[in-house]
Design a binder for these strands. Structure first.
Lengths: 339, 339
DNA sequence: ATAGGACGCTGAACCGGTTCTGCCTGAGCG
DNA sequence: CGCTCAGGCAGAACCGGTTCAGCGTCCTAT
């Protein structure tokens, strides 16, 4: 099948290629009747701009990149990414931008992907997720001058690179306060990958608030997998002075922790309260359903994409807040026995 | 930062742009010393071909498309896609192809996405997942002549479009035979979206094998969500003549079904056996861990991507089998009481 | 009456690759 | 020794858009 080009339109309309370009792009330079004629013919012929041709002359790829550096075994289980991506897409669709996705083994490889995308003019900008405490990717982005939005880090400045950050600190404070209000005096936390900046931020705030409120705190560093969640929960719950509540850094670890509690004969929530960070259908699937910190992940993705799109349109990079997290109380948390 | 072009290399090497092209692409037309000089200079300058320029002249986008049409609420929970994608990427990386991803609301919209990708020269081919029993997308692909690989359908011919299909029928036979061998005489099945071709194939084989083996069969049509799984499991298990085993079409519904069984006071596996189609960490997370039909999903994606890449290289479209499924027996299945 | 714009459009250059044609040189052959 | 032919390369065209300079034409202001 043959796809029409602007030359075809120009011939049919009896004008030059240049005039067609002006007409189709809504730019001055053609009369209104001519513009309408060109638009009508373009419509009739079913013309769609050739991505590569436009990219070549406009020096814009018309695409943004998302590289994901998590081990494959975690990747599948994380509901986060697909939801995040579906949120991104909504914004991209409005602007006729495409999403180029790449799964990479680690952040070093991700930096290389950025370099290559940049060198090949493959994407106009990237959305960087899972910022590390010490993250080599930030330097790469800065060196390349590749437009980017950093997602999931904290709210600080990163040398002029935009960011979208959830206020994990505030959320952590509310969770701890909630648990303390329920009478809990020893709270455990099963963290995600400690090198992630938002995990570090949560841990810092967890330590701080528990100290402020004068309750005991025990943190165990995990990696978001169910195995780690189960192992660390078992560790926490086997102590003679076990915590009466545990905050898990994701739903998968929380569910695994729940299974461990049940296996150890601990009643949830009577003897142990469980909170999951990030809500998902998984939290509603288990019994009791898990109290969770919910956030609108598609909206999060959309915010990130919109921020990047605006930078590509010429806006200055800025730090914008993501949707706030909200504590959804379900059956896995309760007043501590005798509290 | 400035990115070098072939003209820069040509100038540095003292040859023409054309000669540089021959040298870099390993084609005849330049002497060996010149080729080496050009390659060395390209390396020094860090030259990477401009995606758009190459795409424009070579009439190849250098990318393949994957559109996913599942409601957002299911999307996040399905471990399938991210694993599938990571498998695709391995193959694409070898061939310097990019993956363009788009999430769409339904298959009609997906057809439109194919049309647009084709018209815009955005991708060279697509991987189509979740074939429906009557699927409008197939006609779109055929009409456009867009190279494609259909994944997850059955093994039949589709008018010259390639396919990669798991032998769901054989797997279903093995599951039913396994359960019957354990003494089960009434087997339930909670299916996924009935309009999906592989779901229909499974149901057909389920009906056929249960008939052959003269055991009762009860099928309930779900939609892969935990809510449906729970509701349908409850329906099956509330019957006076309830099945003693249920095969669920995915892990999420199986886990939901397990929760329902426990809630109803049915011991698993003593009073009810549960099998999950598609294994995932989720199946290992719950107690008892679920017997599941496991398959190597990344390998599945890689097979599909390789098949498409070969078609783009000129190979004839063919139907290739995916990795076989294997029944992983865990704690959720047992000999039927009194069987 | 005429200079000066603004408007509407043409034609060509350009983006960075690929590919075709054709020239020049040197080797091989009769 | 001259002719042929192949190899090695230059130069230009081309892919399909965007953009810029320039050129008539008509309108307006002086």
């Amino acid at each position: 099948m043959k796809r029409p080009t602007m030359s075809d339109i120009a011939r049919a309309a009896g004008v030059s290629k240049g005039a067609v370009s002006y007409a189709l792009n809504g730019r001055p330079g053609v009369s209104e009747p001519t513009r309408e004629r060109v638009l009508r013919i373009a419509e009739e012929l079913g013309w769609v701009p050739h991505t590569a041709a436009r990219a070549l002359s406009a020096a814009k790829a018309g695409a943004i990149g998302l590289a994901i550096a998590r081990p494959a075994r975690i990747l599948g289980l994380e509901p986060f990414f697909m939801q995040f991506i579906s949120g991104i897409e909504v914004v991209l669709a409005e602007r006729a931008l495409a999403l180029v996705l790449q799964v990479v083994p680690d952040v070093a490889a991700e930096g290389e992907v950025y370099r290559h995308w940049w060198a090949a003019h493959r994407v106009d900008g990237v959305i960087m997720v899972d910022e590390r405490v010490s993250d080599p990717r930030v330097a790469v982005l800065a060196a390349l001058g590749l437009p980017a939005v950093i997602v999931g880090g904290h709210t600080g400045d990163r040398g002029g690179i935009a960011s979208v950050s959830a206020d994990d600190s505030a959320a952590m404070r509310s969770v701890v306060e909630y648990l303390v209000a329920l009478g809990h005096r020893h709270i455990g936390r099963v963290a995600g990958l400690a090198e992630l900046r938002h995990v570090a931020d949560r841990t810092a705030m967890f330590d701080r608030v528990t100290a402020e409120l004068r309750v005991r705190a025990t943190v165990a560093d995990g990696d978001f997998t169910g195995e780690a969640g189960a192992r660390l929960a078992r560790g926490l719950l086997s102590r003679p002075d076990r915590p009466t509540a545990i905050v898990f850094d994701n739903d998968v670890m929380a569910v695994a922790g729940l299974a461990v509690a049940q296996e150890l004969g601990l009643a949830v929530p009577a003897e142990l309260s469980i909170v999951s960070w990030d809500d998902s259908p998984l939290c509603r699937l288990v019994h009791p359903p898990l109290t969770a910190l919910a956030r609108d992940i598609p909206a999060f993705g959309a915010t990130a994409a919109r921020s990047l799109a605006e930078i590509l349109d010429g806006a200055a990079p800025a730090g914008v807040p993501a949707e706030p997290l909200s504590l959804t109380v379900r059956g896995s948390t309760a007043r501590v026995a005798g509290g």
